[in-house]
Amino acid sequence: MRQGVDVYMAGKVVGSLLILTACFCMGYRLSIRSRLRLEELESIKSAVIKLDSALEYERLTFIQALGRCADVESEGFFRSVYTALKNNNSVKTAWKYALEENSANSYMTSEDIHRLSLLGEGFESADADMRERCVKDCIDYIDSREEIIKPDIERDIKLYRSVSLTVGLFIVLLLI
């Protein structure tokens, strides 16, 4: 009888720990989302700046310049575009393919992806002024996102982690 009660209590303790761990893991994942989004945007910004300078000053072809950007981010959006262009796709098709491939695993929002697609339209165009405008718009957009996201990162991390732990405790209390 006593052994049965001990096993029952042990099961409750293990279940409670599992619930708390699961809630904390979910909270942790949510808390780092903003920081990862910021890192992705910064990576794209540095790649765009490198691409633009390679096209503007070094007068490289688009695919050569993209090869330089693909080195900035070891795996990601620009590498996907570069790989697709090397397979004889057009800029539009390569850009679209890269967006579809990377958006699922990305922390970027739908607005970020929309801005990235507008950048693709700029590069597809042969007009240098339009390309410059699109690059400038993209960099300004990323700068504005950085200004908004950076102050909130620390606060969001603390908030999500503490709330997730509290929710876990709440669920444990409901089920005990």
């Binding site: 908030l159 503490s162 709330v163 509290t166 929710v167 405790l169 709440f170 209390l173």
Partner: peptide, 8 residues
């Protein structure tokens, strides 16, 4: 717990 979450 509710008051802690409310404050946070």
């Amino acid at each position: 717990l509710v008051s802690v979450m409310n404050q946070l």
